[in-house]
């Protein structure tokens, strides 16, 4: 501060003006002229409004267009209730299966070396790279009337396609990578030293897993489950192929939205869509919270 005061005393007015210009020029290096900035920001806000905010608003506006009573009446329809119930059951099954699978895969890949590891990691990503419709068709090929196991299933009177098992299978396949993907990098980063420490302190395998491994990855597990659940409830393509669209029986929420919309029942369609939109919003909030916890979990190493 004292330096600055001394400077300003000794400097003439033109000097200080030149200095201010130099400072402005320095600032300009890192930013655009004001009109350009305004134009770019406006463009970004407009884009976000049209593509993200507006659709969300429209969903809720349409859902409530005939008032709040019509909204709840639409949701209370037996067909809607059946779809909500089916969606919850399918999500519970596929999230449960993928949680177990993801934990096992993460554990195996991050903590051990074995041949074929890279192949396994690539295979886990397969459902992400295949179109969901094809994922659904695979199950039709396997379990359909003309499929590989079709005649055997018919003989034993087991219904997989056009029933809950088929929908759950297709959803599980499509949401297969989420938990494993969330856990593998986290567990790889954490390494195996804490487990080794636990075992040398006398802990059994199960004690090590439940007292050391699992607490270390709990936020990662929740993160994976959250994304897995969001995708499981919203899945359309694969489920559409295997569901058979039996009203009140094999329609999940996304399928019912489409059917109702095609039948011009806009309030009912958007009422159910609004539930899915709310799920998305809750997922986003939970995701932000979890990401904060995940960042805290990364222990800064000092050397």
């Amino acid at each position: 501060m004292t330096m600055q005061i001394a400077d300003s005393v000794s400097l003439s007015a033109s000097d200080s003006k030149a200095r201010a210009q130099a400072a402005a020029a320095r600032n300009n290096l890192r930013t655009e002229p004001r009109p350009v900035r305004i134009a770019i920001i406006t463009l970004a806000v407009l884009f976000l409004t049209v593509f993200v905010v507006l659709p969300l608003v429209v969903v809720f506006a349409q859902a409530f267009s005939r008032g709040i009573l019509a909204y709840f009446a639409a949701l209370a329809e037996p067909e809607a209730m059946a779809a909500i119930k089916l969606t919850l059951i399918v999500a519970a099954i596929s999230v449960g299966l993928n949680l177990v699978f993801g934990l096992v895969a993460g554990w195996a890949i991050a903590k051990f070396e074995f041949p074929g590891k890279t192949v396994l990691i690539t295979l886990i990503d397969l459902p992400f790279s295949v179109s969901p419709v094809i994922s659904g068709l695979v199950f039709v090929l396997l379990f359909g009337a003309q499929g590989y196991f079709g005649s055997w299933l018919r003989e034993h009177d087991i219904q997989i396609l056009f029933a809950v098992p088929g929908i759950a299978l297709a959803t599980t396949f499509v949401t297969f990578p989420f938990v494993a993907r969330a856990l593998i990098p986290l567990m790889q980063e954490q390494g195996t030293q804490e487990e080794e420490a636990a075992i040398s302190l006398g802990a059994s395998g199960l004690q090590t897993f439940f007292r050391v491994t699992l607490p270390n990855i709990k936020w990662g597990v929740l993160y994976g489950v959250l994304l897995c659940n969001a995708r499981a409830m919203g899945e359309f393509g694969a489920v559409s192929v295997v569901s058979g669209h039996i009203r009140g029986e094999t329609n999940t929420m996304p399928l019912l939205v489409e059917i109702l919309y095609n039948e011009y029942q806009f309030v009912a369609a958007f009422a159910i869509a609004s539930l899915l939109a709310m799920l998305a919003l809750i997922t986003l909030i939970a995701k932000t919270v979890l990401e904060r916890h995940l960042d805290e979990g990364h222990e800064p190493r000092d050397h």
Binding site: E196, S200, S204, N216
Partner: peptide, 21 residues
């Protein structure tokens, strides 16, 4: 014997403390 039965105290270079405890 496995590591569990040997009753050996091991101190790691990077401490390996249980970070959630």
């Amino acid at each position: 014997q496995g590591a569990r039965e040997r009753h050996v105290g091991f101190v790691f270079q990077h401490y390996a403390l249980f970070r959630h405890m």
